[in-house]
Amino acid sequence: MIPVIMKINIRKKDKKGVKLFFPLFLLWIVLWALLIGLFPLILIIALFLWSKRYGRVLFLIYPFLFSIMWSMSGLSIMVEQKDNKLEFFIK
């Protein structure tokens, strides 16, 4: 499932922590619009760079980018020290 929410929680002792909920689906909409808009340009650059092998990378960047986006759901990082705590979730 495509990730829809990113949550960041930073806590420090005696200080106000930071809690951030970021709706990732808004980012995906903007990113997809950007990628679709740039597609003709990337296609032309890829064809020009095909002989230098970078063209193939540019050509494959779309499917790989989408597969990474779809795979991020469930990523979780939590680091806790004595007084500090950092949490990062993608759901």
Binding site: S73, G74, L75, S76, I77, M78, V79, E80, Q81
Partner: peptide, 8 residues
């Protein structure tokens, strides 16, 4: 330190 990482 405690670290807990879950990577799909």
């Amino acid at each position: 330190e405690r670290v807990n990482i879950r990577v799909p």
